[in-house]
Nucleic acid binder design. Structure first.
Lengths: 194, 194
DNA sequence: TTAAAACATGTAATTAATTACATGTTTTAA
DNA sequence: TTAAAACATGTAATTAATTACATGTTTTAA
């Protein structure tokens, strides 16, 4: 099959590209700009997925080319053009289909501490206890952060009722950190000094 | 600064490339081939990190170019040449340095189920309960798998004593799955039928 | 009034990771 | 004896993700 100069590449986005669904899901809540979406990753989305604006802007362009979203330009002040993106019916359908599909893959957790632990061969390795202590501090701090977020984001039952999934995620993350710290502390041997 | 045709590219591997440290750590245990290393990812390493042979072979070549490993060719049968890789002192040093460094980054967990949960807005969403049920099955199966591995890999205290870090990882993974299942079950509302 | 912070949108270059393509040998079990 | 499984090593193409480069506007607080 010959290709001609004028023939356009078919724009597709792989099913495994999860970022697209986050974008669709966020736009399903309300029309937003690329900048708004980027900020969402600094807040709640950031607890469980990471993305920079350099990934988001190109993907927005591609999602528009595949017909999942459209945009309208609105002006802020005299010169600043903002692109408000919104879902098309096709984009909404894609989101709903994805949520309805099974999620049979286990988390591929990439925890560098766990990786290092694997290469600690004996219980009396002098590096083990400092490593545990460092991780305890890290996860205690993360736990405090998550507890604080639950207090502020889900202060009343109404907040829980209208973002129930988000509440579940936060609840899960809090428990995970609590158990992580408990587990670390169990293998921490008390020091005698000072 | 001008570059000439004969000038070679300096081969470097980024510090953030974690796979290199797994390879170094595995080779620290004993000299191995790329095939052996690949198999290690089907077994215990696979519980917490993934890599295919198409990633491993090129990285072995680069690690040799940076002077971290060397190889010897051994013959199996008449024609089959195997490359046995082993650490150089520099490679060993690199491994030890990495293990000794702080690990201040929290796990970036990429759990698709968690992602979907975020977009479930209310507790009575009909998709919620089937999603929870699916995940319970998935994590119960994973838990059984991990328990079975602990039984077989760490059957006696001697096995624990000589691969203590690995034991800790497995113990942690088991607890994580137990808590995950408990957490999922807490939000599962019992059905009345059948 | 002005400097800093926040808002706003992109592209380029590089690196990491996955999937597919490619080929051949040795061992094991039927 | 032979077919399948396991052993063994690579490259090519594509996609995802990160880091760096690039530029400009509006709002806020000193």
């Amino acid at each position: 099959m010959k290709t001609t100069v004028s023939e356009k590449e078919a724009v597709t986005i792989g099913q495994r590209n999860r970022l697209q669904y986050i974008i669709l899901g966020l736009l399903d809540q309300r029309p937003q700009t690329g900048y708004d979406l980027t900020k969402a990753f600094d807040n709640e989305i950031g607890e469980f997925w990471q993305a920079q604006h350099s990934q988001i802007y190109p993907l927005l362009k591609r999602l528009e080319e595949t017909g999942d979203i459209t945009h309208e330009v609105t002006m802020t002040g005299e010169k600043l053009a903002k692109k408000q993106y919104q879902l098309t019916p096709a984009g909404h359908e894609k989101l709903v289909t994805w949520i309805g599909e099974p999620s049979p893959e286990l988390t591929a957790l990439k925890d560098e501490f766990i990786l290092k632990l694997y290469f600690i061969k004996t219980a009396d390795d002098p590096r083990l206890q400092p490593m545990l202590q460092e991780q305890i501090l890290l996860h205690q701090r993360q736990l405090q952060h998550l507890l604080h977020r639950r207090e502020t984001v889900f202060a009343d039952q109404a907040a829980i009722d209208q973002a129930y999934g988000h509440y579940l995620i936060l609840d899960h993350a809090i428990e995970r950190e609590q158990h992580y710290v408990q587990w670390l502390e169990r293998y921490l041997t008390p020091r005698k000094d000072s």
